[in-house]
Write a protein that binds this DNA or RNA. Structure first.
Lengths: 263, 263
DNA sequence: CAATCATCGTTTGTATGATAAATGACGGCA
DNA sequence: TGCCGTCATTTATCATACAAACGATGATTG
């Protein structure tokens, strides 16, 4: 009768194990850890769509936590469209079409689970669809303040000495364009893409030392937007993406040989 | 000391009040209703980003439910990036940039809260970006089975007698193209768009009686995809969207005069 | 024998109360 | 004045109990 402090078979999440962001987010909460674990295992294929998950009692045992924590974790996963749970039945993994794949967490689990090359290709495809049009919209619709933000980000890129600084400025540059497009729906889309791409991106274009090489490409985009020339902006982004795409392809080919991917 | 069955000031959700889909989803669960209410009020602007929400005890009182239900609802909203809650502080509404606006529920609340015309325009813009490229990808990548699905949906559209049947087939048509594009990330995107558009769409193109008029447009798309001609597919979708866009514009203008929008 | 229907058991849903942990606020102390 | 400990408030977690839903099982009946 002391399952309280007893064996936590899994869940070796120390009070604050996360290192993302500053340190504000309560990454140490139990229900979050549980949701994280279950969600990752679903995206991972361990629990395929249609599968009936273990019932709450079993989760309690395997995690060594109370039913409350398990239920709250399950509610989060329900909110992401991963599972549905009903009395007497249990929790069932929903078909993939129901998943909110564009949810930050879900996409994160997906990235972690999916074959990198496969995912990277699809992501790049989406970028090639969205970003040129985003830039074109920004060229057509930007306000003076928004243009200032884009210019500031560009200056920061040009002045960046370290890789980290350059990456930060680059993200700001894209985000500023996104906002200048003036479409509220594009913003979260772009955020998701950027965030999912983020870490992976660091290992492709950025590492190859061609940081400086893409600067002119960015400048062309800025110039086109400033001149309110949507077609030029679209073309400039396409060109820049073409470069990135080629580099990604090289990295993928290189990575396929030395398959020791990891941290 | 009997707050159990006592005054439920809000929450007039009878056991099954939802009418979406068949009737499988447990729309009557308490935590879902609570999450629904709070989420809608956040998107609605009643609780602006940065605001500190009432604490759990107050929610319990105002909804007339137990803390369990409230907490589970809050967990769902946390999972959607709407709020963050920490001990001693309470639940705070996160900045809009954190919101998973592409979540089905969140987008639904957004649609309900946003000025329709504004939202409709942005949505249409996203469609005009995504759908032509989706069709082009489908033309390039479709498998025989996927083509069959598209053709079946087209036949259903052609054969549809009722508005409902036509709508259903139309959704299937778009979804089949989405899947044929062969990009896992595009699928949820398209689903979100379609679902959010859904109800609204019913009041625009469909109601005007030009159901039959768009059939040739759909056929052009099908033909282009079948012939594996991406450029033709892209052009066909653009043309069809152009029609829709014009109709949407008309409806919007008409709606702006007789401002009695409601159910 | 077969079909219908009531009963039962399993699993989630909800309620309640208690304890733990986190953290801002306050006041004490140097 | 500035640092530190205590406290109060709020969420986090736990434990327990009961309600509701619903599939399965078996009894009842034509």
């Amino acid at each position: 009768m002391k399952p309280q402090k007893s064996a936590s078979k899994a869940l070796k999440a120390p009070p604050n194990a996360g290192r993302r962001g500053s340190e504000k987010e309560p990454r140490g909460s139990l229900h979050r850890s549980v949701a994280q674990d279950i969600g990752a295992r679903i995206l991972n294929g361990e629990f395929a769509p249609g599968t009936l998950l273990p019932n709450e009692a079993e989760w309690c045992k395997s995690f060594g936590v109370s039913r409350t924590a398990v239920r709250e974790a399950i509610k989060m996963l329900m909110g992401k469209g991963l599972i549905i749970s009903r009395p007497r039945i249990g929790s069932r993994v929903l078909p993939r079409a129901e998943w909110n794949l564009l949810d930050r967490d879900v996409l994160g689990w997906y990235v972690a689970a999916a074959k990198q090359s496969h995912f990277l290709a699809h992501m790049q495809q989406v970028r090639e669809i969205l970003e040129p049009e985003t830039a074109a919209l920004a060229a057509a619709n930007h306000t003076p303040e928004q243009l200032l933000a884009i210019e500031a980000a560009y200056e920061a890129m040009a002045a960046a000495k370290t890789l980290a600084a350059w990456n930060e400025a680059d993200v700001k540059f894209h985000f500023a364009i996104l906002q200048a497009a003036g479409n509220e729906l594009l913003v979260p889309l772009g955020l998701v893409i950027e965030s999912a791409l983020g870490s992976m991106f660091t290992y492709t274009a950025r590492q190859k030392g061609d940081v400086g090489r893409t600067l002119p490409g960015h400048q062309r985009i800025l110039t086109a937007i400033r001149a309110r020339r949507p077609n030029a902006a679209r073309a400039a982004v396409r060109k820049l993406l073409g470069d990135t795409s080629r580099i990604v392809g090289e990295v993928m080919r290189a990575g396929r040989k030395s398959r020791s991917a990891g941290a």
